[in-house]
């Protein structure tokens, strides 16, 4: 109930401030440009349209985009002092964190849904592999949830939004680098283990390839649960300092 109240306020906030709309426009412009480039190449027969193309663009874009969505979640509450009011209301910290996270995830979901336009376009001019695309979309949706959870955690760590965004970008960049980990770590088994801890490691060779694996879902869900739990404890720690 409280989660829902906070969730609704978050979503309202996204839709009533120009900031979120600008982000949405920027994301649409970016994906649109890349999609057109890809499409015209494919039309000339140079390449094929990868069914996971748009989701894979997101897999990188989220490194910068998720922190922008989440940086204000808790940092702003602390700066504006509303956190004090939230914590003195009969609301548990879990509802606060969950409501805010779900709000951000919901916004991301809508944005992702907007890019389905590209799939509809593809469908009208070709016979794309819909199952494969769907799989990649499911993957990037979970992936997005995990990146937003990272951003939420950093938003709770500091009341400065810029610092929060910067820190989560660094963290996400490290988590994103999964596919290049082999370039850095010579030992294959170590590289492989490190890769399983990264976000890309559970997307680029499974969801993006059209393979839905239970363990990848568990990974992203696990990241979300653990990070939100930590965030919740962090928010609650105000009470215990």
């Amino acid at each position: 109930m409280n989660t829902l109240t906070i969730f609704r306020r978050e979503v309202e906030q996204y839709f009533t401030t120009p900031f979120a709309w600008l982000i949405a426009a920027a994301v649409l412009l970016l994906t649109g440009l890349l999609f057109n480039q890809n499409l015209s190449q494919a039309a000339r027969g140079a390449t094929i349209v990868d069914p996971a193309f748009i989701p894979s663009v997101f897999s990188f874009a989220l490194v910068f985009f998720a922190p922008l969505l989440t940086m204000r979640l808790l940092a702003e509450e602390r700066r504006e002092g509303t956190m004090e009011l939230l914590l003195t209301s009969p609301v548990d910290e879990g509802s606060i964190v969950l409501g805010k996270f779900l709000g951000a995830w919901f916004y991301f979901t809508l944005l992702l849904a907007l890019t389905l336009v590209y799939q509809i376009i593809l469908l009208s001019i070709s016979q794309p592999d819909i199952g494969h695309s769907l799989c990649a979309y499911i993957g990037i949706w979970l992936y997005g949830g995990a990146t937003l959870a990272v951003g939420t955690l950093f938003s709770a760590l500091t009341e400065n939004q810029i610092v929060s965004a910067f820190l989560s970008m660094i963290a996400l960049m490290l988590l994103w680098l999964g596919d290049s980990v082999g370039q850095v770590i010579a030992n294959l088994e170590v590289a492989r283990f490190v890769r399983t801890l990264t976000l890309q490691g559970h997307y680029s060779t499974s969801f993006a390839a059209g393979l839905f694996r239970g363990e990848d879902v568990a990974f992203y869900a696990g990241i979300i649960v653990v990070l939100l739990f930590l965030t919740m404890r962090l928010v609650a720690s105000n009470r215990w300092r």
């Binding site: 906030q13 504006e80 002092g81 509303t82 956190m83 004090e84």
Partner: peptide, 10 residues
């Protein structure tokens, strides 16, 4: 609280 906590966009 002493500093009125507000959500400016509401």
């Amino acid at each position: 609280p002493e500093r009125v906590p507000l959500y400016p966009d509401m």
